[in-house]
Design a protein around this nucleic acid. Structure first.
Lengths: 231, 231
DNA sequence: CGCAGCCTTGAGCAGTATCAAAGTCGGTGG
DNA sequence: CCACCGACTTTGATACTGCTCAAGGCTGCG
């Protein structure tokens, strides 16, 4: 039964034409394996050698770095369609970051060797990866900038909007259940869990959001945008 | 005479085999132009459309982003051999960052059109850029992380070591003249100019460095490494 | 000589972190 | 079904880092 699940999950990955996964998986020489990661399981850890790339079929994965005091600092949260783990293979280094499943995830794994084989032969993949890397660059610079110059509240606003984006595949209007602890939110925003609690409460008082446990309902998106100064 | 200078500067750019500049400039279809930027001149500004790529022959250039309060926040300082401005062309967006000459700089400019032409035809360039982009990614993540979790003093230590690296082409032992104002140093470290002054003084008291105007001599590199927690 | 830009120093303050102690919630085993 | 446990959240008090503002000093240049 577990096997069936895996098979089914993996059919999807070739569905979206021209996705990373389809390019990689369709390649005749590629031996992909489909893996299920349970909530909390590690895909890979920073400073280790990259074994291959991971193409996410379903589920959310947090990308983070660990500080000396063992705290996790989340850099991004990715979901269906994302390809992760390729940068250190190309840069010929070790993983800069760690990746952990936030919920049950189905993932295609392609070994380093196979990945490089495809990369050699496919100008298409090369270009697509290049584009992806350049875009990410911009994204990380943006985060860097945010954390360097903006107060916590602004960053939290940006974070909530981002999370809504990520958790709202269903595209329904508003009630987004964010399955993250306050601790995890704080590690995205770059602050302490207590500060997150206080600011969320403040935002609720100001009618920007409504909180029910972990469910955060954005009631005034426009104002959040304004706080986050996103144009 | 200005013309001569330019010509001479531009011969160099093909010297280092397999550099970005040589790959681009040697290409038959590329019409490169060699430009001299005076200290303080802008190569390009964030949020503008990328006109082309810049290959740095000589001089230092600061890469930064401007905050709403019009302060510059330096992301990196690059010198000879660097290629800048390609990311937004590839990602099909606008410049994420600005670039300004910190001193007189000689630069090869290759237009967007020519750059894309070479990119199409050269798998070599594609791969090299991909590698470069992936490496930068790692670098920016590292900075992001630093600024998010480390106290100012640690970051300043890292910054000094970085600056020594950048300004020390000559590889002489120690006395590095860093031609930056305190303000500029502060905008690398992500703090205020006053804090930089105070911390530099503190470091001098602790015999880590010696200050003579803008000249900063690193007298105890090992300890600086330790403060910066660089292994 | 005087001005402009930069550096330095001090004092006060704001934003956040940290620590400690309750309070809540969901699940588990009796 | 209840009581309890552990993990998470909330709240309050306190402390600290680093910013801002203001004033004065230095240096190089016109």
């Amino acid at each position: 039964m577990a096997k069936d699940q895996i098979q089914e999950a993996c059919k999807n990955c070739s569905e979206e034409i021209n996705s990373f996964c389809s390019i990689l998986c369709e390649h005749p020489e590629v031996q992909k394996s489909c893996i299920t990661f349970k909530k909390g399981q590690l895909l890979f850890h920073e400073d280790t050698n990259p074994k291959g790339v991971y193409c996410i079929n379903s589920g959310k994965i947090k990308i983070y770095k660990t500080s000396l005091d063992a705290k996790e600092h989340i850099i991004s949260i990715v979901g269906t369609g994302a390809l992760i783990g390729f940068a250190p293979i190309i840069a010929e280094g070790t993983h800069e970051i760690s990746a952990k499943a936030l919920e049950e995830c189905h993932v295609c794994f392609i070994s380093r060797k196979d990945f490089l084989k495809v990369l050699q032969t496919s100008p298409e993949l090369k270009l697509k990866l290049l584009k992806e890397a350049c875009k990410r660059n911009g994204g990380i610079i943006e985060s860097l900038f945010n954390i360097a110059v903006r107060p916590v509240k602004d960053r939290l606003a940006v974070c909530l909007l981002m999370l809504k984006e990520v958790y709202n595949n269903s595209n329904t209007a508003s009630p987004v259940e964010i399955n993250l602890t306050r601790e995890e939110i704080s590690s995205i925003v770059g602050t302490s869990a207590e500060t997150v609690v206080r600011l969320l409460k403040e935002m609720e008082r100001d009618n920007l959001i409504q909180i029910t446990g972990r469910k955060i309902l954005i009631t005034n998106e426009a104002k959040l945008f304004k706080i986050g100064k996103i144009y």
